[in-house]
Simulated scan of single mutants.
Amino acid sequence: MFLCLYNFKDFKTSLIFGTAPKRWFARTWVPLKTLRVYADGSMKGDKGAPVVLDFRSSVIRLRQVCKNEPRYVVELPMPKWVIERIKEGGDIKYAMIGLKNNELYLALVAEREVEPYQPSGYRLVVDVNSWRYGIAWGLIHNGQLVSFKQEKPNLNELLTLYYQAVKRGRKHGALMRIGLHHTTQGKRLRRQAKARRGKIYRVTRDKAYFLASKLVRKALKYKALLVIDDMTEESRRELLEEGLPRDVIKLLMSNLRRFVHQLETLAKWYGVPYEFKRLPSTVCPICRHELTQEDGRVMVCPNCGFKAPRDKVPMHWAIKEARDCSVKVRYRA
């Protein structure tokens, strides 16, 4: 299943509820049937469905859900991802309409039946950290780390946007305390602060989507088993221990859940076998002794002398588990 939210933007006032959705609508997503009309004129779905996906004109039409209009009153351009999912053999059998952050969205749900492939012996290990340290991934084969990389957004850009937003927000707050926040200057400061926070969200969201897509494509290329070590909460605790402001921590953690969800969704869609597995970064993969951290986030074992960058320790655990699994398979054979 592949789900994507489509923002109505200028179409909010077209709903039967008038210019503002009723309270229950903010808490409920309404399921809608769909009719799909393809380029060759063939159709699938309910002919009376309120959501019509017309691939001949590359538009989505809504009917019977809008005020004072018997048929189509809202026509949206067809998102590119919908066309791509259809080409890949998917189908959009139903949709949902609802609110997210007080914005109206149409959620289109694409479904596809696919059997996961048999892994070839490669493992693609993904260690989910905060954006400060990046998403670390490694490709493992025959007990060796073939490739390793850490990826993250431009942190300087994100922090610059954050501090600019804070500065403008404080100026707006100062004007509010003396009753001048409705002036031209006050409104401008509020817009500028909101725009910068919005850009932070978009940058991290786009990075999450891009990276999830890149990793699934890499898993497909090598027919690898995708191993996901979701350390989101541990990363949050680590940032708290460093004494960073909570707003900065929120910035560094933004959209990581979205990344994990997108990674899992794409893996299901393309038939990539995956598993969630705890791969510790503070326990020695050789002797299981507690590691100590030195400067530069280098982990050292005081018991056996193992030494590695913190973000590579999970890769050593994955190599160890792959070897143990291989030994068990040979033993059974």
Results as ranks from 00 to 15, higher is better:
7 N>L: 07
16 I>Y: 10
19 T>V: 10
20 A>S: 10
20 A>C: 05
30 V>D: 00
31 P>T: 11
32 L>A: 01
44 K>Y: 10
47 K>W: 07
49 A>D: 02
53 L>E: 07
53 L>C: 07
54 D>G: 07
70 P>A: 04
72 Y>P: 01
73 V>R: 15
75 E>P: 04
77 P>R: 12
83 I>L: 11
83 I>R: 15
84 E>N: 13
89 G>S: 12
92 I>H: 00
95 A>W: 00
98 G>W: 01
106 L>R: 00
108 L>I: 10
110 A>H: 09
112 R>H: 08
114 V>P: 08
117 Y>M: 05
119 P>F: 03
131 W>F: 01
136 A>E: 03
138 G>K: 03
141 H>R: 14
144 Q>W: 09
148 F>L: 10
156 N>G: 15
160 T>S: 14
162 Y>K: 15
169 G>A: 08
170 R>F: 07
170 R>A: 06
173 G>W: 07
186 G>M: 10
192 Q>E: 15
197 R>Y: 14
204 T>S: 12
212 A>P: 02
212 A>C: 02
213 S>T: 11
221 K>V: 06
225 L>G: 05
227 V>R: 01
231 M>N: 14
238 E>D: 13
238 E>V: 05
240 L>D: 06
244 L>N: 04
245 P>S: 04
246 R>P: 06
249 I>S: 01
250 K>Y: 09
251 L>E: 08
254 S>E: 13
257 R>S: 12
263 L>I: 00
266 L>N: 07
273 P>W: 01
274 Y>D: 00
276 F>Y: 15
281 S>N: 13
288 R>P: 00
293 Q>I: 14
293 Q>H: 03
304 C>F: 08
314 P>Q: 09
317 W>P: 02
332 R>V: 09
